[in-house]
Design a protein around this nucleic acid. Sequence first.
DNA 1: CTGTTAGCGCTTTCAA
DNA 2: TTGAAAGCGCTAACAG
Lengths: 322, 322
Amino acid sequence: MKDVAQAAGVALKTVSRVVNGESTVAPETLDRVQKVIRELGYRRNEGARQLRQGRSQVIAMVVRDIADPFFAAIGRAVETRAEESDLVVMIGSSHDEPAREREVALGFCARRPNALIIAPIAKRQDYLQPEVANGLPVCAVDRPAQGIACDAVLSDNIGGIRAAVDHLAAHGHRRIGYLGDDPAVFTSRERVAGFRAAMAARGLQVNEDEVRLGAPTPGSVGAALRTLLDPSDPVTALITANNRLTVETLKQLGATPDRPALVAFDDLELGELLNPGLTVVAQDPEAIGNAIMDLLADQDREPREVRIPVTLIPRGSGERPP
Amino acid sequence: MKDVAQAAGVALKTVSRVVNGESTVAPETLDRVQKVIRELGYRRNEGARQLRQGRSQVIAMVVRDIADPFFAAIGRAVETRAEESDLVVMIGSSHDEPAREREVALGFCARRPNALIIAPIAKRQDYLQPEVANGLPVCAVDRPAQGIACDAVLSDNIGGIRAAVDHLAAHGHRRIGYLGDDPAVFTSRERVAGFRAAMAARGLQVNEDEVRLGAPTPGSVGAALRTLLDPSDPVTALITANNRLTVETLKQLGATPDRPALVAFDDLELGELLNPGLTVVAQDPEAIGNAIMDLLADQDREPREVRIPVTLIPRGSGERPP
DNA sequence: CTGTTAGCGCTTTCAA
DNA sequence: TTGAAAGCGCTAACAG
């Protein structure tokens, strides 16, 4: 900027004015300075600007895994909105490791972002307390944060599972098996609670053997399916509570001649190409991203929790009769 | 940092030394300062550090679409490697718009990243010339950049298509139809050239009616399939040259009783769950991400172009007989 | 409309 | 082993 000022024969501050599009610059000065800027390939150093202004025009985002299509889609929505305000997006993954979450989030905070979006995996996020106290707007996504006062944008897990149960019940199923994730995961707890509530509301009995919770490994899904589909007394329908469980279940069900009806929580890109098509309860990542940005833009109030509706999409697998 | 120094009764520079883990600090001073740092929740301002040091410990990455699984997977690999060097990753999408690519890339450059990774979509990237001249390491991915001297990491498009042709030929096919993307896209041009070369090498004739290039819209894919599968004289096998074309093709082929054999370029997450399983030429996003980081770490030499091998994965659709 | 000065939080340089 | 002072590139505050 100093070079530009010298080359254009003006003061530093005038260049600053031009760069920032302030209107109090004479047209001819403006032209001259802009010409020099182009010639020298000058571009403002955002770091220095941030140092002076306090924040860095960055939205930081810590997700479980940037390669997870659900979070990638949220990232896209956030990025689209961020761009409108000339913010850039920093993304990092926790890979479901609490220590990594902390490290990545604090590493981001050291860059003084305008806001932090985090998909909590650690038990508590109180390590963020100093940042929050310092005025950093934080928004949790997918699960609420613990130990700090912040917004949260979550899917309507309970309503989604209820829709799945209702759909299967409407197609005549009374024995519905449930495959959920490790109950250490917040969404897993909500969804299984939703399952029990929805079954109860329908007057359907939940056999405890037929609610299987655990990490979506081939082994645990295989064991669960063997129990649920035991030929002597099989369930007639299944609900899989997240996309990794669904994929694993589909793989193992592959050759089964008499497949149970299936409704999956989370959409899969090729769901409609499978045979039968996969009936899903789809989350709405774009709405989630937009809700996050809305909350972040509207601070100085009590923390708020927003629930985003989900949609049941029938494609065949959930409409099979018992 | 000033507060910490005051509270600990030491000079600014001593705090700096502690924060940076310099070894020339007396153990007791170290303890005292670290304690104060914890109490005050102090964290170094990376922006100020960058201002002093020149670079911001950021890897900037401009991709076509962060929600595209291929780029998301590359992003994950890059992020994993970046973290080892305490770098964070900034991601933005061009959404295939040249103007957006430029805007996002220059916006990133204003943050003085340590390196820039870009999936070029604009015809030329010479707008980056000042940054490159200024020492910014740039690496193109998926397609080479034009107008600047920089590295590039690309998939072996020609070898991949050759593998697809050879595979189909080995299964007895001699009439192979080809669905490619808009030839404005670099990878599309390489792949279709690879198709012609591979067919020629096998002594197979390429009927120009049966090489269909165009954006992966339902309309254009539908038209292409009608031509290729015309009952009076259908091809016996198809190659789809990217994942969006593949998905659209699968959708439209869905109900066809007598499906042609199919080999797709790009893997799909559920490829193995389809019936028949989808035979693909899979790219290797992790290897691509690693190659990028290797190149970026090794500067001060001639620009280099790295080709990453692809792998044909037979799953059923490509093994059908004519 | 334009310029001067101070200082953001840190590291570098030099000195003690 | 510790500290004082200068300055990275920019903008805010205040002249002129």
